[in-house]
Design a protein around this nucleic acid. Structure first.
Length: 301
DNA sequence: AATTCCAGGCAGTCTGTCGT
DNA sequence: ACGACAGACTGCCTGGAATT
């Protein structure tokens, strides 16, 4: 049994050209090496295949039956190898790839709704899975490929991941249209008279960025309700005299029966970023998807 | 586990010879 | 005379050992 350890692909390529040219010098020219090099290659090929492969005649080199029989398989092999090292360019119009994006409901509303519209147009055969965020397992899910890209905030991202800034978001204070607070500008005392509601996606906490600001002011509010999603937040706000801070871009999309008031203090906003595993850095499908998100982030800003 | 170093082997060129 | 092949030499690559 012949050993393929000594076989390199360039030898097979040389054999393929030799079969076409039936001449060592012309083969050397085509391979951009010197004639003795091809001679040496032929000698190695003869050892590997245990066959003379070519015999010299008056009319040049004549392939042996064994060499002629190798030709179709050689062409296939070289073609396959060429495809292997030159993966097809990503074409959104024809791609049938499936991508999984982890993103919370606020970002779904701001980014994913326009993303889907864009995808239906420019990548009609692609499939997209939107998944609720996994803060704890995010890194391992990105590493294993269960999630391809996450839209999130920097605080949730392990330093081993790659990130790209999309846009900066601000909070606005929101109440329902029928809320007893009528003036746009509200005093701190009046602001604290009412019960508040906040979004805590994972742990049901009653504290958020607003409470950190209040603590520094030596004050505190009563958070009566903690909900897991921004969709629930907007529903609840419409039904009761509560106050909530919500992302400005979300309010712009879900302001039915709601209005903003000017809070007596500012709450720092947050950066929205994409995060992915370095493994997929140059994966053409992923690169394309991240570019789409970046574009949408820029237009959302 | 990753990086660096080193020895051995191999493929390439140049030059020259041989066979058709 | 032309083209294949062989020998001498050079530089690069690879695999294993040593080191970090």
């Amino acid at each position: 049994m012949a050993d393929i350890r000594n076989l390199d692909l360039n030898l097979l390529r040389a054999l393929s050209v030799l079969l076409e040219e039936r001449n060592v010098s012309r083969t050397a020219e085509r391979l951009h090496v010197t004639q003795p090099t091809v001679s040496g290659m032929l000698s190695r090929l003869r050892n590997i295949f245990g066959d003379p492969l070519f015999v010299r005649t008056q009319r040049g080199l004549l392939p042996t039956p064994r060499a002629e029989a190798l030709a179709p398989a050689l062409r296939r092999l070289i073609n396959d190898a060429t495809v292997l090292v030159n993966p097809a360019e990503f074409d959104p119009q024809t791609s049938t790839a499936t991508l999984s994006v982890s993103v919370n409901d606020y970002m779904q509303s701001v980014l994913i709704v326009p993303l889907v519209a864009e995808l239906r147009r420019s990548a009609p055969k692609m499939k997209l899975a939107i998944r609720n965020p996994e803060v704890a397992g995010l890194t391992s899910m990105l590493a294993s490929g269960q999630i391809d890209v996450a839209v999130t905030i920097p605080e949730f991202v392990d330093p081993s991941l790659r990130t790209q800034f999309l846009y900066r978001e601000e909070y606005v204070a929101v109440v329902r249209e029928a809320h007893p607070i009528r003036s746009r500008r509200v005093s701190l005392k009046r602001f604290l008279d009412y019960d508040h509601v906040l979004v805590s996606p994972s742990d049901g906490s009653f504290e958020g960025p607003t409470d950190n600001v209040l603590r520094e002011l030596g004050a505190s509010r009563r958070v009566a309700l903690s909900v897991p999603s921004f969709f629930t937040l907007t529903e609840v706000l419409q039904e009761d005299d509560l106050i909530a801070f919500m992302p400005r871009r979300l309010f712009a999309r879900r302001s039915k029966n709601l209005r903003t008031i000017t809070a007596p203090f500012a709450v720092p906003g947050f950066d929205v970023i994409t995060a992915w595993h370095p493994r997929t850095d140059s994966e053409s499908t992923h690169v394309w998807m991240r570019e789409q998100l970046l574009k949408l982030g820029e237009s959302a800003a």
